[in-house]
Nucleic acid binder design. Sequence first.
RNA 1: GCGGACGUGGCGGAAUGGCAGACGCAGCGGUCUUAAACACCGCAGAGGCGACUCGUGCGGGUUCGAAUCCCGCCGUCCGUACCA
Length: 837
Amino acid sequence: MVETIVRGGTTGDRPGSNYDPAAVEARWLARWAEDRLYHVDDATDRPNWFALTMYPYPSGILHMGHWYAFSIPDAFARYKRMRGYNVMFPMGFDAFGLPAENAAIRNNIHPAIWTEDNIATMRIQFQAMGTMIDWDRQVASCDPEFYRWNQWFFLRMLERGLAYRSNGAVWWCPNDQTVLANEQVLDGNVCERCGSEVIRRDLEQWYLRITDYAEELLREAEHLDWPDRVKTMQRNWIGRSEGARLRFALAGGQAGDEPLEVFTTHPETVWGATFMVLAPEHPAVVTLTSAERRTEIDAYVERAKNETEIERASLDESRPKTGVFTGGHAVNPVTGELIPVWIADYVLMGYGTGAIMAVPAHDARDFAFARAHGLPVRPVIQPDGADPLDGGSMPGPYLGPGTMVNSGPIDGLRMPDQMAAVLDWVECNGRGHREVTYRLRDWLISRQRYWGTPIPVIYCQDCGIVPVPDADLPVILPLDAEFTPTGQSPLVSNEAFVSVPCPACGGPGRRETDTMDTFVDSSWYWYRYTSPHLDIAPFDAALVAAWTPVNLYCGGIEHAILHLLYARFWTKVMRDLRLIDHGEPFLRLRNQGMILSAEGTKMSKSRGSQVGPDELVSAHGADALRLHLMYLGPWDQGGPWNDRGITGMERFIRRAYQVVEDGAKVTPTADADRGGEAAIRRLTHQTIAKVTADMEAYQVNTMVAALIEFANALFAGRRGEVAATAAWREAVETLVLLMAPSTPFVAEEMWSMLGNTDSVHTRDWPEANQDFLRVTEVEIVVQVNGKVRDRVVAEPGADEAAAVTLAMASDRVRTAVAGKAPKRVVYVPGKLVNLVV
RNA sequence: GCGGACGUGGCGGAAUGGCAGACGCAGCGGUCUUAAACACCGCAGAGGCGACUCGUGCGGGUUCGAAUCCCGCCGUCCGUACCA
């Protein structure tokens, strides 16, 4: 695409030899601070644009992953600013959490001090990266002026029944000595924070009722401009299943016994239900178990309790289906048959009702269980055109479509097409009702750790759970705590914190000592950027209305479920509290890929495989590093780190710098045709179009390629005749403007070299002018039978006949055609002609 | 097992139905230099002296034309997992 302009001479000097990255960066950092260039006003005559990037944990130092995650969104934000928006690109710190405690224990330094020091360091590093962050808006979640609003939200949820305390089996990390949310348990049994194996414990804990929003979270995700894989992951995590709840009465005539309820997605197969299976923890197990089975059942329940979770982590489908008969029976609600009730660990208490009707003929797990324990198999769905299925001899379950058999009134119905008729029958005959079940569990937010938001409730012997009155917020996290993990919150031993009068009756009360999951902080932090120091509400409603929902949210794919699901839930709760008017926080989401070590493994502090940006910045400059990260490959793909290419980025910057330096010396003459002007103008506007399109699509690698091509062409022609024209001047200015989002420091320097006294970052983005894109001739590819044989030059509007004539004038084409008449001609105007002979 | 993404030179990658390998790195040749580094100018998928032939994981298909669409396989990565 690059046309040869005019070849200039060479000097032998290194291009851009006057460019000193360190000096340029220092100069403009000082100047920008002085001019408050990145201060964001809430109301301007421009539309607001909220560019958000997931706030980092203040781990102490910015590594390459941070540069990848922040410098590229910074370029997007700068681009939007040049496109005429009033852009807010704020930053904060996810400052509560375990690493601070662990560092505190290791280094004998208080988490608050450690965190504060790290934030100070990282702020400076962020500035060195050349970001347009407005630091006046910084928030830190460990700041009482922030976390008091966590407490305030919690109280609002408590009032609405969205926060509740419940006893049950929870995930416990023995290393971190705290409970975890379901979402924080990876691979079935691994702690998301520390990688230890987690275990099950029975504890009373605080939950947030995210399941109330399951349907809405599922439904509204469809319309978001988010990567499909994130939406898919959320959909699977929420895990919606449609089916029916059926009631199975207990046999034995105990009148007071509640029937067993099951959830099934296949109610049509109830005629084939030949036994039932309960989860070992199911409350009915005790009453169902007959005296002679008791010992065996108790042993199984005990074993399941201790082993299941660990075993389940390594299980596969071939794992033997163990289980024990309770000695009790239930009544199949449609056949009236007595069917045995078993317990087995393949039935989970946490899903559905913790009990299933087993239909071995049409379910893989039930089939394996039936064969292992000699239970009857009764087919009720007959595949088309096959011999009748036989329960005794069928080699495996039949899972496909077919016609109902052995099923009384629903015999002959087609499955799955006529499922609705089955559900109608079930409901009309009082056997059960339609039901939708979700895999999503409520969000467990209690943590038995120190460095987090205190949960604002007080326990009173007489009044029970009493919320801390709003007027008493924040409940300050005391700094004088002994925070070594013991399995109990470190606050338990802090008598001054714990012992308080009951707000209701004034009697002796004890404060809740657990703290909140840090995902609470990150569920609403971005709203706080709009009014970071407001002390009468979590945020200013008018400012939030002016800035949110977020226009573009950038961050790592690892938050696809955890943070992004919680944040959506919190937003919907805030909407229902009438604090905001929208239910989805992030209109558009883009994920960066992960930067891996050179070996392709995850970079980690412990393995020492993290790469620091400092040496590269001092050797090549922050701008070169920013470009290098953009140029590594598609941003959403990430990939193994290497620093080999950064020299090329520095070369590019130096050439651009040289072009500007030379260009600044020339006074453009009035337009006169010097032979290269039309070409340089076309290239300028082609580049504008390409860079703009790539920026809109977040394709920064190809955007940089276009900048390099443009700079190379200008470099080659910089000392030729054309360099004295107005077209040239426009080209040079355009190059600087197009580079501004990506290389903010050197672009600013070059802009001032061109005699400007304002900041390039406040300038308007150039616009591609169609008039300059017009070409005088086009190259048409000539194919014979689909193989390229030649290229011919034609007029831009050449029709098929003209193209064929030109094509046939070529010797190579004539040789390939070998005198035969074309059977068919395919012509793509201005691009390609294919002669089929 | 299920769901999703991906597979292109020595390397990162570009091209999403129309010239495969843009751009960059590394490499090679030349210029400059006492020499080197830097820089600049050029070369560069493989084979062939050449006209040409072959070439985007493998096998098939659709199409005038396929890296791109479809079917089957192989491999890598990510997510998820006894979800009734």
